[in-house]
Simulated assay, not measured.
Amino acid sequence: MNVSVSSEIDLETRKARAVSLTKIAVRRLAEIGVGAKVMGSLSAGPFGEHSDIDLLITDCPRHLKYRIEGIVEDCLPGFRFDVVYLDEIPPHRRHRFLEKVTDAGDLR
């Protein structure tokens, strides 16, 4: 197998793992009443070797903010991630974030 084919398979495997783990993370967050969407390269592509996983928290009881990042970290071993809270984005910029999000269940 040549290097480029091997690299493509590794990236496909990495993305498949990222999708699977992200779905688990979003489901675990939903279980505690937190709404989350996926954004960034996992949502819009291309998801590469150095890509992180970006989550937009759309609905969250304030007292759970620290717990959220712990859940995400536990669910995404081996991946860097960013958690962005919709209520912390200035109102005039929220539309830019919301137009580029995906439900975890729609990830492929």
Rank of each mutant, 00 (worst) to 15 (best):
V84A: 14
F79R: 07
V19H: 04
G40N: 03
L42W: 05
E31P: 00
I89L: 07
L11V: 03
L64D: 08
G48W: 01
R62V: 13
T58A: 09
F81R: 02
V5T: 15
I89A: 06
V34D: 08
R96M: 13
E73I: 01
I68C: 10
L107F: 07
S43C: 14
V83I: 14
E99I: 07
P46F: 01
I32A: 06
S6E: 12
H50P: 00
P90D: 12
I89P: 04
K100E: 13
G78N: 09
R94I: 06
V72S: 03
E73V: 02
S43H: 00
F47K: 00
T102H: 08
I57M: 03
S20D: 10
I68W: 02
D103M: 11
I9E: 02
S4I: 12
R93N: 12
V72Q: 00
S51A: 05
L98P: 05
C75T: 09
L11S: 00
I24P: 01
L42T: 05
P91R: 11
V101R: 05
R28P: 01
D87E: 15
F97N: 01
G105F: 05
R14E: 08
E12G: 13
K65M: 13
R28C: 10
H95P: 03
D103V: 10
P61H: 14
A36H: 01
D103C: 10
L56D: 01
T102W: 02
